[in-house]
Design a protein around this nucleic acid. Sequence first.
RNA 1: GGCGGGGUAGCCAAGUGGUAAGGCAGGGCUCUGCAAAAGCCUCAUGCGUCGGUUCAAUUCCGACCCUCGCCUCCA
Length: 471
Amino acid sequence: MGLKLFNTLSRSVQEVIPLDAGGKKVGLYCCGPTVYDFAHIGNWRTFIFGDLVRRYLDFKGYAVTQVMNITDVDDKIIRRVREMGTTLKEFTGKFEAAFFDDLKTLNCRQPDQTPRATEYIAEIISLIEKLLARGLAYQTPDGSVYFSIEKYRAGGSRYGQLVKLNFDEMRVGERVRSDEYEKEAVADFALWKARVPEDGGVFWPSPWGEGRPGWHIECSAMSMKLLGPSFDLHLGGEDLMFPHHEDEIAQSEGAGVQPPGRPFVKHWLHGAHLLVEGKKMSKSLGNFFTLRDLLAKGFTGREIRYLLLTAHYRETFNFTLEGLHGARAALTRIDECLTKLRELAGAAQGNVDSSLLSKFSNALDDDLNISGAWGAIFEWVRDTNRKLAENALSPAAAAAALATWDRLDSVLGVGAPKEVEVPAEITALVESRQAARKAKDFKRADALRGELKAKGWVIEDTPRGARAKRL
RNA sequence: GGCGGGGUAGCCAAGUGGUAAGGCAGGGCUCUGCAAAAGCCUCAUGCGUCGGUUCAAUUCCGACCCUCGCCUCCA
């Protein structure tokens, strides 16, 4: 069965058919972070969405090349570099490292390539030169270069493929930034920004004088360089539809580098934003969380990942602390089941359960209906628990269940429960308690239980004996 | 104003022209010396409101109410 995803270009759910003649290779570009601060939970929702797409394509057997850009030069970065009296490299390096740490904490796969904008200046310049040569861009007296939407449209190209725009309405009451007053039309966007004193040491030489790239051009330059001028999937947050992605299309297709009849990007994917505690995230409301803020509250990366993966990517999701507690409980349910399966399976071998697997992939094939996929998983957990309780599972069947889970988890990435080492001291206490219970010295047994609890361990008495569990 | 999402149990969240997945919380039970932990069972005559189409609508159509987002550098 084929994977179908909503394509913003067509505003409909369409099957993903690779451009690759062999139908195997898929190019996936995900808009990455602008490294001017720690990424917040809303950013992470989108990055996890990208990771899900990547992992599911892998699961489906495609040979995926995932590229995620690191935007390490833009207005905000320059402003902060100036304010903090540091250098661009030092400033962005810190947040870039934090980004990759966080990516790992959330168990996102490292993209195959993570190009930095500042390392693709040559490609950016060459792309701008193509646009100038084709008459779609113009230079202003200050040395900036802009993309002319009017010329682009005059050439028969469509500007406004991802969103419906009313240009006449838009020209009323628009904002004109003081540094962009030289543009021919307000809708035009910068490809190259001439150096101004506030940029400090952040500038590169170019045929138009010293300056730096505009915001959209880096994604065009890097994606086309690494994935080719026409590729399969491009993903980002819904806010990027306009102007960022629209401008990317204009400048990439305007350069005329695609083979005849091929688009810059075939399938555009956009992830919805999230609300936190029912409201738009904002620092003044106190509901603005970075990943680090949540870790500091004691939540783990996998709990956060799980919660962000429970809802459909095109729906606004309400992220709450209560939801995070629920995520913890839900994951524990899965963990308990897996632990029991592991105990039972031992060294036995088993084949994957294709019925669960097909329920899972049927749901995900349908525009990544992950809620449906979780539904199938939890039904399976309940069913497995029932069999486990009835002793109706053979070691081979348990091994098969575990093999199936591994397959599912290659997509979900919430991981298997960690095998917690029980310290000898704890084991000794558990054994003393067992001895006391056997001697019917319940007072002492309860005291030992209390002692264990104080040390952060709970005793789980099962028909097969007692075991200690980390609180 | 223009464009686009949403409104499903206490909370989160799927889904379907034929009578509502799943998770959390809650309730009951099993196990236990008692607990805890864990497990099982249970939990919406109802899907924003009002009309319409239909044998049948939460699902289609219309109107309305509420809510959220985008409309030039915010994932």
